[in-house]
Design a protein around this nucleic acid. Structure first.
Lengths: 235, 235
DNA sequence: TCGCAACAGTTAGAGACTGTAACTCTTACG
DNA sequence: CGTAAGAGTTACAGTCTCTAACTGTTGCGA
């Protein structure tokens, strides 16, 4: 690996950065984004205030790093779930497994999920690599739709997605890494729809809007994913 | 109406509160929740700092008020859309119209939508009347599912919803106001699923995650709602 | 081996913000 | 018309981000 162990100084630096992030995550879990305060982190790590600016350009930079980490972590979780599937898993079961993996990650670390999905923090500091990160999460979903036959309801989406893949070479290349040629539109549409379903069901659950009702979460998401599989005629 | 004009003092008070909220909304639109600052509001309204605490107990109280207003506004928009439907509108068309109304409101005022759907602000200060507010938005969706036949995919959700309605009298009463008896489970399931679909598609669009792709938003939501109508066998 | 540049850390402080305390002026109303 | 409630004020304590200017340390090349 690159960057793991260079000079002793660089190693120490990485270690301190990691410690800062760890404390920031704890604060995030305890009080949301607003509770992440550099001064308090500094106190906890035994440094005095401005020293943290040696490690992060600003509070926003720290949060951005946290966001990137969360995306990577989620993508890894999804990837692990995909790898754990037995080879002859049907597309429907694959979909359910991947969706469950996303939800499990989100429920286990709600604050980190909210960090990803909520409005970033200040204005719209959408980092440019957000799209790539989303691709990392969504990639394993693509193959499930390779043999899908989109119903009339979602065919307009598939058409738009085909157009997108034709215009954007990077996207086309990404899709082609997961899916045989010819199925780009359907696969993309399926992935985006899956994303939207995940965002809806998990977002509601994680922001605690399912308090009164006998908590389902898993049931709701499973139902939506099952419907999605129906919509694409998956086996 | 009650509370419109009482004493001259009370009237002035209401006026000032309204002015404060107006400025707060502008700040919200310009820089997100973090940009709403009492001191700057005070400066703009011509008062000096702590005077605002005569009108709002705290910054959070102000934001909570903004959230309540946003919910009420959205519910009103949905209600208006429902009232505008011609009497013999089919359930599928009704669903599409209501969903489009929600999306239109959200796209017109993204910051207010994010205020509603995102993590409130600090921790989880979920106001107790959030559920009622959500009901106000969701109520008009219920009748669309009165004659619905949930598919196997969503039947587990309907079952859970039936159980919920049996346990929670307030919910049961609310549902019964919109839907004939016997259809509670299906109607509730449809409404919650619709909510989740809306949350997913609109949330992604409003947080700007659809940048690269040929912007759809409306297409995606329409497709999801159409699928939902399929799932419930709506005409 | 030594010198110095890059690095890690410090204190001091400016500026924005939330919220409290103590006080004064004004006005509605009994 | 006297007074209590309300609207507003200044002063201030405390938290936070971030900059400036300075000091101590370390590792690396000459």
């Amino acid at each position: 690996m690159t960057g793991t162990a260079r000079s002793p100084r660089a190693r120490y630096r990485e270690q301190t950065r990691a410690e800062i992030k760890e404390i920031a995550l704890r604060q995030l879990a305890e009080g949301g984004t607003a509770a992440v305060a550099l001064t308090r982190i500094a106190k906890e790590v035994g440094l005095s205030g401005p020293a943290l600016y040696r490690y992060f350009d600003s509070r926003d930079a720290l949060l951005t790093d946290l966001i990137r980490d969360a995306y990577a972590d989620l993508a890894a979780a999804v990837g692990r779930a995909a790898d754990a599937l037995v080879p002859d898993t049907g597309p429907r079961a694959r979909l359910q497994a991947l969706a469950a993996a996303v939800r499990a990650w989100a429920v286990a670390e709600p604050h980190r999920y909210l960090l990803i999905q909520g409005t970033p923090v200040p204005g719209y500091t959408a980092p440019p690599d957000t799209l790539d990160s989303a691709r990392g999460v969504l990639g394993p979903f693509l193959p499930a739709f390779a043999d899908g036959r989109p119903s009339a309801a979602v065919r307009p989406v598939a058409a738009q997605m085909t157009g997108w893949a034709e215009r954007d070479a990077a996207v086309a290349e990404w899709v082609r890494r997961h899916v045989p040629a010819g199925a780009e539109g359907a696969a993309l549409a399926g992935a985006v729809l899956a994303w939207s379903h995940l965002h809806g069901a998990i977002g509601l659950e994680v922001s605690g809007q399912f308090e009164g009702m006998g908590h389902e979460g898993a049931t709701l998401l499973a139902a939506q994913i099952d419907s999605l599989a129906d919509t694409f005629g998956l086996a």
